[in-house]
Design a protein around this nucleic acid. Structure first.
Length: 216
DNA sequence: CAGTCTCG
DNA sequence: GACG
C-alpha cells in the first residue's frame, strides 16, 4: 500500500485507506452506474431478488440475487456457494463484462492485480434493511480480495476487526463508491446500518450493492 | 450469529 | 454483549 502504486489514478479515485489492505475508491463506478443498473435489471429478471433465510431461521432484510459461475446462498442448512439458483434450479446468469471489468479495475486500483471474480452477489436494500457484522469466509482462497460497489442511496458501512467484539468504524458510502479489502483485512468483520428512506434519481427508494468474490 | 434481544 |  505505497502511494506510488496509485500515481496514475485520477485524483478523485485516490484511495482512502481504512485499514491495512482495505481502501475506498470514491465515485470509482460513477461513469458506468447506469450500465451497471441496467445489467442488474437484466440479471434479476432471470434470477429474481429474494430474501433468504439464515441458518438460525430468520429472514434477512436484504433481497439478494447472484450472477457468475457461483452464487452465494443461505438457508436453514447453512451458507455456501453453488452453481445453480435454488429458486429455479438453473445456473445463475453469467457474469457480465461490465461487472467483471469494474471488479478487476477496482481491485487493481486498490493494489490487487489480476482479480478474476467467479461470483457477484447483488443486494437490494430498501428502507429498514441492514446487514449485521459478519465475515466473508465461505470462499476457498482468502488471498483473493472482496470488491463492493454502492449504487443509489447512501448507506453507512461498518468496517470492524477480526473479532466481532471489536468496535467498527462507520463509513458513509455514496452512489458510485467502491470498497476493496484483502490481504490482512480480508477476514475483517463488516456490515451496513439500517437504510434510511430516500429517493435517488437512478434507483428510487433503494441502494444496490454488488459484491464480487472469487469463491473457488 | 449475513440473526434478535437486552441492558446501561 | 449474550445468545446456543
Amino acid at each position: 500500500m505505497t502511494p506510488d502504486l496509485f500515481d496514475d489514478l485520477p485524483a478523485e479515485h485516490l484511495p482512502e485507506i481504512i485499514a491495512e489492505g482495505a481502501v475506498i475508491l470514491r465515485r470509482f463506478a460513477l461513469d458506468r452506474a447506469e450500465r451497471l443498473l441496467g445489467v442488474i435489471g437484466e440479471v434479476t429478471e432471470l434470477a429474481p431478488l429474494r430474501r433468504m433465510k439464515t441458518p438460525g431461521g430468520h429472514a434477512m432484510s436484504v433481497a439478494m440475487s447472484c450472477c457468475g459461475e457461483q452464487g452465494w446462498v443461505t438457508d436453514t442448512r447453512g451458507y455456501r456457494y453453488q452453481s445453480d439458483d435454488p429458486l429455479s434450479g438453473r445456473p445463475w446468469p453469467s457474469m457480465r463484462d461490465v461487472f467483471r471489468t469494474l471488479a478487476r479495475e477496482a481491485a487493481s486500483a486498490a493494489g490487487y492485480e489480476g482479480f478474476c471474480p467467479d461470483a457477484c452477489l447483488i443486494n437490494r436494500y430498501e428502507p429498514g434493511a441492514k446487514m449485521g457484522l459478519h465475515q466473508d469466509r465461505d470462499e476457498h482462497d482468502f488471498k483473493q480480495p472482496i470488491v463492493s460497489v454502492t449504487l443509489g442511496l447512501s448507506q453507512v458501512f461498518q468496517f470492524g476487526g477480526l473479532r466481532r467484539n471489536e468496535r467498527p468504524v462507520n463509513i458513509p458510502l455514496h452512489h458510485g463508491d467502491v470498497v476493496v479489502w484483502g490481504g490482512p483485512a480480508r477476514l475483517r468483520y463488516h456490515g451496513v446500518l439500517t437504510l434510511k428512506a430516500g429517493d435517488h434519481p437512478l434507483t428510487g427508494p433503494c441502494r444496490y450493492n454488488l459484491t464480487f468474490r472469487r469463491a473457488r
